[in-house]
Design a protein around this nucleic acid. Sequence first.
DNA 1: GAATTTTGTTAGAATAATCTAACAATATAA
DNA 2: TTATATTGTTAGATTATTCTAACAAAATTC
Lengths: 219, 219
Amino acid sequence: MASTTEENYLKALFNLANPQGEVNISELAHQMQVSMPTVNSMVKNLQKQGWVIYEKYKPVLLTPEGKKTAALVIRKHRLTEMFLVTKMGFGWEEVHEIAEQVEHIHAQKLFERMDEMMGYPTVDPHGSPIPDKLGRMQEIHYKNLSQAKAGQEVLLAALADSSTEFLQFLNSRNLSLGMELKVVSKEPFDQSMVVSYEGKSAETLSEKVCEKLLVRILD
Amino acid sequence: MASTTEENYLKALFNLANPQGEVNISELAHQMQVSMPTVNSMVKNLQKQGWVIYEKYKPVLLTPEGKKTAALVIRKHRLTEMFLVTKMGFGWEEVHEIAEQVEHIHAQKLFERMDEMMGYPTVDPHGSPIPDKLGRMQEIHYKNLSQAKAGQEVLLAALADSSTEFLQFLNSRNLSLGMELKVVSKEPFDQSMVVSYEGKSAETLSEKVCEKLLVRILD
DNA sequence: GAATTTTGTTAGAATAATCTAACAATATAA
DNA sequence: TTATATTGTTAGATTATTCTAACAAAATTC
Ligand SMILES: [Mn+2]
Ligand SMILES: [Mn+2]
Ligand SMILES: [Mn+2]
Ligand SMILES: [Mn+2]
């Protein structure tokens, strides 16, 4: 069974994988906040356990086993976040840190019960998909708000950044998932947008912000 | 900050302490399921951190800091057990294992929120007291059911054993905390008792069982 | 294509938590 | 009060996770 440390590495590999599934040692070291030699030895360990494919000087790849193990940890993380928000009244900006610890609890029952109590949610409070019990995660292909054109209406469906700081920024603008936004105008100079939504008739959002808002374009 | 391992040792010390607060190395080794040399080195480590008083060949004692740290872990454990039972529908026989892991989560907020949602319970699902936020635990002095005399009525208030096996035994007899029991008779030969309670008019309980049922004698 | 920078590996060491084997102190029994 | 049993300690080793320093390979720049 994977240790907490190993689970965190597997999750990082899952999240960092490029379209070919590859992750460089340096990226992983950066993500995990450890030195490259540390990653080098951990990767050898993960390989021995059958969770990654690794050859000297080549990027690391998760095996199907590794992918499944990672996805099941992510499932516990996201179920926990959703439970904390919907059943315990936490704000979406408070739950990641807690879930980062709870995800390592080995008690299937606990998470199955959360799932059941919530009615089997498919996404977490930040709009990220929750993998199923078999570790299958369905890819959802959203657009950035920055790709929308003036006049279009969109549904805010997920976030490309779930950091506390970004979530607090969204709170300060009264933005939350499920809202309909209308692009009032787009500034050609800096790609910033003026949008209107529930209560706000003209809120300006920078390109940086718009790129992190994942939307479904309506009609 | 105490590691998970250190927290588990502190908790064991807290629970094993005799009236003078002393714990022998061998008892601790037995409780923790590790060898005596392992305990010896851990005790030296706990001493360095100011959690225990220790001299070669003498029993170990928790310091006030050690006691407080232990009590706060026990608080998290018991709040978790109570939350799992009252808010998530788990049986009292299922929660100890899960709480054993959840108690090590470093997120004050999580436990404060559980506490709040439950309306600040004072005991866990097995009748054990929940320490307060400052780590103060009030001693409750119950009697064993085996100390009751024939004809007496008692309130089942807590358990001296919260093992899954014992809890399942109690489930099988439909016994739960808060019930009133009447001692119908006591067998002088083996100290077994015949008791009556909700629905059962004559259930025989062995001395072993009666010693583990903590009661308040009524009237 | 050679020089430089970046990325990755090896070697060697540290800390936490554990073990077994050997020995020493304390407690119990004869 | 010796002998024996129990309890506790030391020494030395192991595994997991991490580090720094030194070196090597690969990628990038000139
Ligand atoms: Mn998260
Ligand atoms: Mn984590
Ligand atoms: Mn318990
Ligand atoms: Mn524990």
